[in-house]
Amino acid sequence: MLTQEQANQFASHWIQAWNSHDLDEILTHYAEDVVLVSPVAVKILNDSFGTVQGKAALRDYFKKGLEVYPDLKFELLDVMWGIFSVVVYYINQKGLKAGELMELSSTGKITKVIANYNG
């Protein structure tokens, strides 16, 4: 079971990795068989399902995202935690709020992400 302290540490490290724009550091959080579903993926990948499957595909998607948004920056607003999941609630570089539900494996790697945005 995930503790509140573990969830907060995870979210803080996740935000720091994204703000560093270090793709390898970002990817340390994700499992090999990760699935990500995001409205941003619809736009960047021109894929109506907005789904990215597997870490190799995720690397390509994140690389494109960092190129499309060179000023990307996240500010952590809140962290919610469950038994095997975390919701990271943040503001992005556009001032829009986002919440990402992340299911975690027993090793603490993200296996599924469902991203939601308010704008």
Rank of each mutant, 00 (worst) to 15 (best):
Y89V: 14
L45D: 09
V37D: 10
F84N: 11
S12K: 11
G50T: 07
V52H: 12
K97P: 07
H29K: 13
F49V: 08
T3G: 03
M1Y: 09
I83S: 09
I15K: 08
Q93K: 09
V87W: 02
Y30C: 04
N19A: 08
V34M: 07
V68C: 05
H13T: 07
P39W: 09
A115H: 01
L72C: 13
Y69S: 14
S85G: 02
N46T: 11
K94H: 15
Q53P: 05
N116E: 12
V68Q: 04
L76K: 01
G54F: 00
W14D: 02
W18R: 08
P70I: 11
Q9L: 11
L101V: 04
T3V: 03
V42N: 07
K63Y: 07
Q9G: 05
A17E: 03
P70D: 10
F49G: 08
Y69V: 14
E5I: 04
Q93I: 08
A11M: 00
F74M: 14
D33G: 12
F62L: 13
I44D: 01
K112R: 15
V88F: 00
E103L: 09
Y61S: 12
K109Q: 12
N118M: 09
Q93R: 09
L76C: 01
A98T: 00
F49P: 05
E32H: 13
E103A: 06
H29D: 14
V40F: 05
A57E: 13
T107S: 15
M80H: 06
Y90P: 03
A98H: 02
G99P: 01
D22W: 04
D24C: 05
Y90R: 03
L76S: 04
Q4N: 08
Y30K: 08
D33H: 14
G95P: 09
L96N: 15
